[in-house]
Structure formats: structure tokens, C-alpha cells
């Protein structure tokens, strides 16, 4: 598998529109079958470090599945078969020797709708911290405040840290979920249409957060909102029917799409 960085298993070029040393996630000949359905078809793509990469494509094209392969949440679905692999740095994601718990810790996850843990606001952040290591109460307090401030939520919740997280508005919940993910100090943030359930104001807040975070984190975001991709993406991976059609820097992708399917998709979505 290590033989040729630019060649996938079937001789197809790996999509990597940036310098070789900048990649942090490498998807190598990934195939995924769920029962008899071939969901991901020979995916070869690399994702650059500390950039915001958007995975774009129509519903059902395998975007979310690809995202969930990256931290192996596919384990939760029975009857799934995977071949090929994904490497986070040098570590393979699929493999019996992989310490998947440690690997997942490197990747924060933000889902379509916010799913606060069934705990109070404070413990939603502290939960991940406690899994990460031992902290004194004072250290925990400090860290909880730090991460809530990172997502601009502190001022809104500082007087009710002990109330259940589900009482927050949905936009606040999503920011809480982002803070919770940041608190385990990941290198990568995986986001699956993180604004699809939010109102425009909350969406914008999350988008702004993402743009700011991409300086220090690698962000991989699934979306089908073209405008959103255009606004914040550094790179775009376009998927169609389980295949990666192309990966390009965002500007080039939107202004000068190369592949026929991309052109059609962009045209269709804009009309």
C-alpha cells in the first residue's frame, strides 16, 4: 500500500491538489459494501492539514459514509464490509491492531442535529475531559469555561451550567457540541452537515467558528449546500454515486469545474 503515493490500487491517481507533505488524512483504495450495496467505490483522496475541506455531492452519494469511515463509526453498523484503508498520519484506521479509541480522540465529531449528552451543560464538556485525563475540580472549571468561550457560549450559559443541556436552544446546543468536541483536543474535526438543522443566524455563527478554527484544526465538512461550501471551503471533494469525481481548491472548483458531472451538478444546483 505504501509503494506509490500517487497511485491507488487500480492505477487511478490519488486526488491531492496540494503538496505531498501537507496531507493528514489519506484514503487509500477504500471500498465499502453494506449488504449487497456498494456504497463507496475505490476512494483515493488526501485531505490537507489545517484546512477546511468540504465533501460535496447529492444526497445518497456516500459523503456521510466516507466521513464516518474516518473515525470508524461504521463499526456500529452490522453487515458492513470494508476494504482498502484510511490513514490518519501514519496510523491505519481499519485494522485489528488499531487503537480505535485513541484514534477517535484525535477527531471531533459534529452531527447534523445537535446531540447533547444526557447531562448538564458543564458535564457535557467535562465528560470528554475526564476521558482524556485526570483533572482537579479547579482545572476542570477552567477548561470548561475556556472551551465554552471558544464557541462564544460562555456568556449565555455561565449562570446555568448545572441545568440540563437539552434546555438550550438548538443553535446553542450545536455550539455546545462543538465545544465538547474541541475539549478533547483533537487534530481533526469531522462535521456532517452541521448547520442543516439550524436557523440562519445560528448557521452563520457555526460557519464563522469553522473559518476561525481552520487555522489550528483540520476540518472535514460534509454538506450539500453549495453556497456554504463556496463561502468557507479551502478545498472541495465532489462525490457522485459513491465515487470521488474530483478534488480541487474551492475557488478553482466553483469557477472552473473540470469533470462533466461536476459541471452538471453545479449548473443544476444553481438553476
Amino acid at each position: 500500500m505504501e509503494s506509490n503515493m500517487n497511485q491507488g490500487k487500480e492505477g487511478r491517481n490519488i486526488e491531492r491538489p496540494f503538496a505531498e507533505g501537507e496531507s493528514i488524512i489519506r484514503v487509500d483504495g477504500l471500498n465499502l459494501h453494506a449488504g449487497k450495496t456498494h456504497i463507496l467505490k475505490n476512494i483515493n483522496v488526501e485531505i490537507p492539514k489545517n484546512k477546511l475541506t468540504v465533501i460535496l455531492g447529492p444526497s445518497g452519494c456516500g459523503k456521510t459514509t466516507l466521513l464516518k469511515c474516518m473515525n470508524r463509526l461504521t463499526d456500529l453498523t452490522p453487515d458492513i464490509k470494508v476494504s482498502g484503508n484510511i490513514y490518519i498520519g501514519e496510523q491505519p484506521v481499519f485494522g485489528s491492531k488499531t487503537d480505535i479509541v485513541a484514534l477517535r480522540r484525535k477527531m471531533g465529531l459534529l452531527s447534523q442535529r445537535p446531540f447533547p449528552l444526557p447531562m448538564n451543560i458543564y458535564n457535557n464538556i467535562a465528560y470528554g475531559l475526564k476521558l482524556r485525563g485526570k483533572y482537579t475540580r479547579a482545572e476542570l472549571n477552567e477548561l470548561v469555561e475556556y472551551y465554552l468561550r471558544q464557541v462564544n457560549l460562555w456568556d449565555e450559559v455561565k449562570d446555568r451550567l448545572r441545568s440540563p443541556a437539552v434546555r438550550l436552544s438548538i443553535g446553542q446546543q450545536q455550539r455546545l457540541c462543538l465545544a465538547r468536541g474541541l475539549a478533547v483536543n483533537p487534530d481533526i474535526i469531522l462535521a456532517d452537515e452541521p448547520t442543516s438543522a439550524l436557523d440562519p443566524v445560528s448557521s452563520e455563527a457555526i460557519e464563522k467558528q469553522f473559518a476561525a478554527l481552520s487555522k489550528d484544526y483540520t476540518l472535514v465538512m460534509v454538506t450539500h449546500v453549495l453556497r456554504q461550501a463556496r463561502r468557507i471551503a479551502d478545498y472541495v471533494i465532489f462525490m457522485y454515486l459513491g465515487e470521488v469525481i474530483e478534488m480541487r481548491p474551492a475557488q478553482e472548483f466553483f469557477d472552473d469545474p473540470r469533470e462533466e458531472q461536476t459541471k452538471k451538478y453545479l449548473a443544476g444546483a444553481f438553476n
Binding site: K68, N71, L73, L76, V101, A102, R104, R105, M107, G108, L109, S111, Q112, R113, F115, L117, P118, M119, Y127, G128, L131, R132, C177, R180, G181, V184, L190
Partner: peptide, 23 residues
């Protein structure tokens, strides 16, 4: 998704069941 969230925070399967699902 609740399981996914807890796993992605670095919890094991059992920690997820004990602290999140059972709760």
C-alpha cells in the same frame, strides 16, 4: 448519534453504555 458522539470523544463502548446510554 448519541453513541457516535460518545465514541468520538474517546469513550470505549462500555463507557458509552454506562455513562451515556444508561443515563
Amino acid at each position: 448519534e448519541l453513541t457516535e458522539v460518545s465514541l468520538s470523544l474517546g469513550a470505549t463502548r462500555w463507557e458509552t453504555i454506562r455513562d451515556v446510554l444508561n443515563r
